[in-house]
């Protein structure tokens, strides 16, 4: 006997989405049930309903939107600087062997360095302002991008270079036409890594440097003993992460993997 085909083929994106949505809906329902029954202490862990209510309340306040705007402004400026400088440094190192031999270990170290450690220095150098936070964001994410760019360029298959050179390519044609595009998939991975470093660093330093953006909302929640507000801001942070990761990088990665033929045929 033949089985009836499910309306959603097992591997389709829609099928995966439906499974995920059902899973998270179940988790939230369970959570709500545990909260309503009094099993979870509402003072420490708010119910989903409570969090939603807080989000609704916050969204009516101008200061809430101003906080989101100012955090997004700082991440935009910080990440842009980080991408520009990081790409340049990563690329520049491959051109100057001496610097590559000396600086790449330093950059690797910097990448692993906890970026929050830049906060005290930034406050002393710049004072309590946007510049300090942006500085920390740049230093927290730039090195990851330059290390990935540097490695991406070094990992370009030699065969591509050989082929390009026998066709007479050097200088601009070699870099813009072959080396850079060949490195793109790995560079994008570096940009994505840099983004997640930048975002974490931003929120971390905003919490330390009280009174800034989303960090301020966290601090207010803590002072007012309002766990629902802390959870609500967590939701905002997570939504931004997911939007950028899946919405932007996910799309770019998919496009590049397809175009570069990196997808494994199933």
């Amino acid at each position: 006997m033949r089985r009836l085909k499910s309306p959603l083929p097992k591997n389709s994106a829609l099928h995966k989405f439906a499974v995920q949505a059902a899973f998270y809906a179940a988790v939230i329902l369970l959570w709500q049930g545990l909260s309503s029954s009094g099993f979870l202490p509402g003072r420490l862990i708010p119910s989903p309903h409570n969090i939603l209510g807080t989000l609704h309340r916050l969204s009516g306040q101008g200061s809430f939107w101003a906080a989101i705007r100012s955090s997004l402004y700082r991440i935009a400026v910080g990440y842009s600087i980080s991408v520009t400088v990081g790409l340049f440094l990563g690329f520049f190192l491959t051109r100057v062997k001496f610097l590559e031999n000396t600086l790449s270990s330093l950059f690797l170290g910097m990448q692993a360095f906890p970026s929050i450690c830049w906060v005290p220095l930034a406050l002393l150098w710049f004072g309590v302002n946007d510049a300090a936070v942006i500085f920390v964001v740049v230093f927290g994410s730039m090195f990851a991008i330059s290390v990935a760019t540097n490695q991406a360029i070094r990992n370009v298959p030699p065969l591509y270079l050989k082929a390009a050179r026998t066709m007479g390519a050097k200088g601009w044609h070699l870099y813009a036409g072959v080396i850079f595009p060949a490195a793109i998939p790995q560079i994008i991975y570096g940009l994505k890594l840099g983004w997640s470093y930048a975002w974490r660093t931003l929120i971390g330093s905003e919490i330390i440097v009280a009174g800034f953006g989303l960090g301020r909302l966290f601090n207010e929640g803590q002072k007012a003993n309002d766990v629902a507000q802390i959870f609500a801001v967590n939701v905002i942070v997570m939504v931004v992460s997911l939007l950028v990761d899946f919405g932007i990088f996910g799309k770019i990665e998919k496009e590049v993997r397809h175009r570069w033929g990196l997808e494994v045929a199933r």
């Binding site: 065969l159 591509y160 050989k162 082929a163 390009a164 026998t166 066709m167 007479g168 390519a169 044609h173 036409g177 072959v178 595009p181 060949a182 793109i184 175009r259 570069w260 033929g261």
Partner: peptide, 25 residues
């Protein structure tokens, strides 16, 4: 010009762009 065993074509370019590359250079 060398034709390599593995082709060494550039995957980010179309067939036409691959042929065009050396001509542009």
């Amino acid at each position: 010009v060398v034709v390599f065993q593995e082709g060494a074509l550039f995957p980010w370019m179309t067939v036409e762009q691959n042929i065009d590359f050396g001509l542009k250079v």
